[in-house]
């Protein structure tokens, strides 16, 4: 095994109505619902992608984080081999509960296809892939809590075996208006080494 080192290129955190990119606040809203916060962020960041409003909360959260980190990265003329390795604790449970509502009452039984399609956590990866045309390695994992060891190991494997040129790692947890997104981009060049302790420190900020 060659001594390949990988580096953290950039990182982004979304929580408590705030979006932070590499220690700089990019957007902040007054305390409000996630739906409202995400809409405000969408407008402020001039995203212009109407499909955003069809997404469930988990996908909006992941999409916003990816938008921030990938805007500068993506070359629209090239094949961007950026893998997506995401994880959370609650899977798509927030949307699952909403879908269950559409089938729980015999007198009002109207299963919603638009909600059902989001009852899988990896759909957010699909949304990011479509937006940025990333025909790349995608995987969604579930852990009880943020698992930097796994993300670091798995991202390194993808880079070292050349299954990807860069990896966008993301912890995107959303349930019942409680949310935290922590995304970071790993590449073969950079300044900050891709290590478990570093990720842990940055996550806690």
């Amino acid at each position: 095994m060659t001594e390949n080192k990988n580096y953290i290129h950039s990182f982004c955190t979304i929580q408590n109505n705030k979006i932070v990119l590499n220690d700089e606040t990019v957007f902040e809203a007054e305390s409000t619902s996630f739906a409202d916060f995400s809409k405000q962020a969408y407008k402020k960041l001039e995203i212009n992608y109407p499909k955003f409003f069809k997404m469930d909360s988990l996908s909006k959260l992941a999409f916003l984080g990816a938008e921030i980190l990938l805007k500068a990265e993506i070359d629209p003329e090239a094949e961007n081999n950026i893998a997506l390795v995401f994880a959370n604790k609650s899977s798509s449970l927030d949307t699952d509960v909403k879908y269950q509502e559409t089938i729980s009452h015999e007198e009002n039984y109207f299963p919603s296809p638009a909600v059902f399609v989001y009852t899988l956590p990896n759909i957010c990866l699909g949304e990011i892939s479509i937006r940025h045309q990333l025909k790349t390695e995608n995987s969604f994992f579930i852990f009880e809590e943020f698992n930097p060891e796994f993300l670091v190991n798995y991202a390194n494997v993808l880079l070292d075996t050349k299954k990807a040129d860069k990896v966008l790692c993301g912890w995107v947890e959303y349930f019942n208006e409680e949310y935290k997104a922590f995304l970071y981009l790993v590449a073969k060049e950079g300044v900050v080494e891709h290590q478990i302790e570093t990720i842990k420190t940055v996550y806690k900020k």
């Binding site: 109207f110 638009a114 399609v117």
Partner: peptide, 17 residues
């Protein structure tokens, strides 16, 4: 309006509901 296949299915539900 650029609606897609999922929108079509949702409209079918709306017709019923």
């Amino acid at each position: 309006l650029g609606l897609d296949s999922i929108d079509a299915l949702e409209l079918i539900v709306m017709l019923d509901k």
